[in-house]
Design a protein around this nucleic acid. Structure first.
Lengths: 225, 225
DNA sequence: CTTATTTAATATCGATCACTATGAAAAAGG
DNA sequence: CCTTTTTCATAGTGATCGATATTAAATAAG
């Protein structure tokens, strides 16, 4: 009766050592991706175990044995979603403005992309898991905060390097672009085209502050105030 | 057994003619407002009849007799919500930019206001009623489209009157500000302060196109192209 | 082989869902 | 008074929710 607890076993260590009991008859990652699409489409609370098991091609006991419960399965799909979308600003972009713009266009591309449900799964999760456990909501809140923080840090760096005007409020500017991303996620789920989202990115980038001509252009950290 | 069908009776005609049967023992509008707050807080599908009746202070049969069913009650709260927020741009603002800005600030005020749940009920509805009937979703989609259309018309008028540059794509600009509003709704539900939302409005308005100096400034419709 | 271990499939569990049948209570019309 | 009409309140309906007990099947170890 000793439980071996193979719930968390994803891809931590995969030597072909044979397990003891009856082998699993489904692909864990494929089932996880199927579950992700269900949650992405219907939302967390509206996705029933019945919806999930039929999409994953397994029975309820297999789901619970492999993933724990509905919330743990959802968290696993959230991690899968976030990991496959590397929520980070491209560090090769020379200026903060370029970095933010490429990030927004990357997002716009994903939001309107084919082969998966429309919009952002994290936004769907935010609205449809509001009544779920505090622990789940804490994870979601952290994921949301990360994107904003990455942008804020990049803008701050831009100020230090002189491609963003001195005195710019990096936090407020990051909030603005976080608002743009959230808005685009809603618009995309509402059916907005890639072209429409890109036009919104154009508009949003027109508001990015640039140093006035003749302003100090630091190269690194040689302050010339 | 003749049903008198008093479901829709809101405030269409209120002469104090006494009805025939036992009088209703609760205030219909107060109950509607209580239901609105439940839907606004928990979302459409997550709000149970039990949640609703206890917040409204009535029993299930009274709810069904007065409002029909859960979907009809929800639609009634949506109408109440939209009506009490006159989703229209202030026509007294002299320019399209002023009109859009005051609209955004009006929205930011409501989104972060006290005395009611955070965020926009229509956005909560959009995400939490996605699996509901097509009819319900059509109503919600129409409400969303209205705000965008009002902004588009006002921007178009600005182009005609010369306070918006010629050649401006009014639809794309309206899409941009609809994105801002949707994004602010999410941020507000996520806990953003009024101050933070207002800073985002500042940023968003910096992107509003203005005629270059020396550009034609039509007063009304005297074209001078 | 037998035993131990793990998964698969069936058939549920109690709780909650949206909703309602039933009859008493409260008013007006006669 | 009695009848009619409408609402109120109790106590449910069948359906579906998330989650499991149970048993058979499949593998490795001994």
């Amino acid at each position: 009766m000793k439980k071996a607890s193979t719930i968390g076993v994803g891809s931590e260590a995969q030597p072909p050592k044979k397990a003891r009991g009856r082998p699993r008859s489904f692909d864990r990652e494929a089932a996880l991706n199927a579950a992700m699409e269900v949650f992405w489409t219907k939302g967390y609370e509206a996705a029933s175990i019945s919806d999930l098991t039929s999409a994953m091609g397994i029975n309820p006991p297999s789901l619970y044995a492999a993933f724990g419960d509905k919330e743990k399965l959802f968290l696993a799909t959230i991690e899968q979603y976030a990991a496959s979308r590397s929520d980070q600003l491209c560090p090769e972009q020379p200026t903060a403005k370029d970095a933010v713009e490429s990030y927004l266009r990357f997002k716009a591309d994903l939001l309107s992309g084919a082969g998966h449900p429309r919009g952002c799964m994290l936004m769907v999760a935010f609205f449809t898991a509001a009544n779920a456990s505090p622990g789940l909501n804490a994870v979601l809140a952290k994921k949301r905060a990360e994107a904003r923080e990455h942008m804020r840090q990049r803008i701050k760096r831009g100020v230090a390097e002189g491609d963003v005007p001195e005195g710019t409020d990096a936090g407020a500017l990051a909030d603005f672009y976080a608002t743009i991303i959230a808005g685009m996620a809603q618009q995309a789920r509402d059916g907005a085209s890639r072209k429409s989202l890109m036009a919104t990115v154009d508009q949003a980038m027109a508001a990015f502050p640039v140093p006035s001509r003749g302003a100090p252009k630091k190269k690194r950290d040689t302050a010339t105030a």
